[in-house]
């Protein structure tokens, strides 16, 4: 043990088998390595100290020194928190939304929200997540009408979105979804990605997964520290933490590409899951309904308006640049791996 080493107790909002918990452990290890053991972060899984949805309270009050989760889990404290994660992100993907957070004014706005709800935390949104599936169903969704009468799980402002589509929606933490489907509390649910969904056991309770959706097209994970604890750290250590967050953010994306693509195959071969593309009319309806929902919240929550204006201003410029500059890679994919694709070797 290095001399004067600091220990911190973290908890994630994920069960230990979820790849998200692995990302949390990766962060702990990165900090430990970068500080040469001067700052040790021990990460416990969801429920070990407090329930997943109780993480913010626990970190804010100092029961935990920090946490690993997502911003939308605190949706009940202030609805605007859902804007880091739920929704179509005005055309931005999760990484672009992080660009807005760092360079487009998001960070200051997030601090403002946390101040209004009295949360004493220092928050680092990081780890941009890839587009999340529409979810796992007993029967595929062929039109928006199929949501009527469905008990469905999602989180954050997506709750409003799927409610508007006709479902009865309950938010549950990731680790409780499959058990809830198993005992009949839910008919259908979404969580996040091939690796997490497979590890949590979705394939045991459903054989149909619908891919592509706008409900959480730009979500990030969040690392949070108790404010007093964080501010008590020497400046050098704070800088290391900030660096470690950004390094882990990138590593998470690389790891996700590698692991999600493997688990996607395993889900098809071993677990016999059938994947379908969400029909375009459903996707289009999501965009329309999302705009109606945000309009409703504009009046009730002044921060909501401020954040959306900031996001739109950034997205307008960034997505135009992206759409114009970046070649659509579908052509290359078809060229090599499509039905008539040819490989040079």
């Amino acid at each position: 043990k290095a001399q004067g080493a600091i220990s911190m107790r973290f908890q994630s909002t994920w069960p230990s088998k979820d790849i998200f918990h692995e990302y949390a452990l990766d962060f702990g290890k990165k900090v430990n390595d970068m500080t040469g053991g001067d700052l040790k972060i021990e990460v416990l899984p969801a429920g070990a100290v407090v329930p997943a949805f109780g993480l913010l309270d626990a970190v804010s009050k100092g029961v935990l020194d920090g946490g690993h989760g997502v911003l939308v889990y605190h949706y009940g404290k202030n609805t605007a928190l859902a804007l880091w994660g739920s929704g179509p992100g005005y055309g931005m993907d999760a990484n672009m939304l992080l660009a807005w957070h760092k360079y487009g004014g998001g960070k200051a706005l997030l601090e403002k929200i946390y101040a209004t709800i009295g949360a004493d935390v220092v928050s680092f949104p990081y780890a941009p997540l890839y587009s999340q599936p529409l979810g796992w169903f007993k029967k595929p969704i062929q039109s928006v009408d199929d949501f009527k009468g469905l008990k469905y799980r999602t989180v954050g402002i997506s709750i409003d979105l799927f409610t508007a589509m006709g479902a009865a929606v309950n938010a549950l933490p990731g680790g409780e979804i499959v058990a809830a489907m198993d005992r009949g509390l839910l008919d259908a649910a979404e969580f996040n990605n091939a690796s997490s969904d497979r590890a949590l056991g979705f394939a045991d309770v459903s054989k149909i997964c619908m891919l592509q959706s706008f409900h959480q097209n730009s979500e990030q994970l969040e690392i949070s520290f108790n404010k007093t604890k964080f501010n008590g750290l020497p400046p050098k250590m704070k800088a290391i933490i900030e660096g470690a967050v950004e390094a882990c953010s990138q590593d998470m994306q690389w790891k996700a590409i590698d692991r999600n693509s493997q688990d996607y195959i395993t889900l098809q071969t071993q677990d016999k899951v059938r994947f379908f593309k969400t029909p375009d009319p459903v996707l289009k309806k999501q965009l329309e309904l999302y705009d109606e929902i945000t309009k409703k919240y504009l009046g009730t929550n002044p921060l909501f308006k401020e954040i959306i204006e900031s996001q739109i201003a950034f997205a307008k410029r960034a997505t135009r640049w992206e759409q114009d500059y970046i070649t659509n890679r579908r052509m290359a994919f078809d060229h090599y791996f499509g039905p008539n694709g040819k490989l040079p070797v």
């Binding site: 595929p140 062929q142 891919l211 098809q268 059938r274 994947f275 379908f276 593309k277 029909p279």
Partner: peptide
């Protein structure tokens, strides 16, 4: 499911 595009 005829109306749906199967992926994978």
């Amino acid at each position: 499911y005829s109306g749906l595009e199967q992926l994978g």
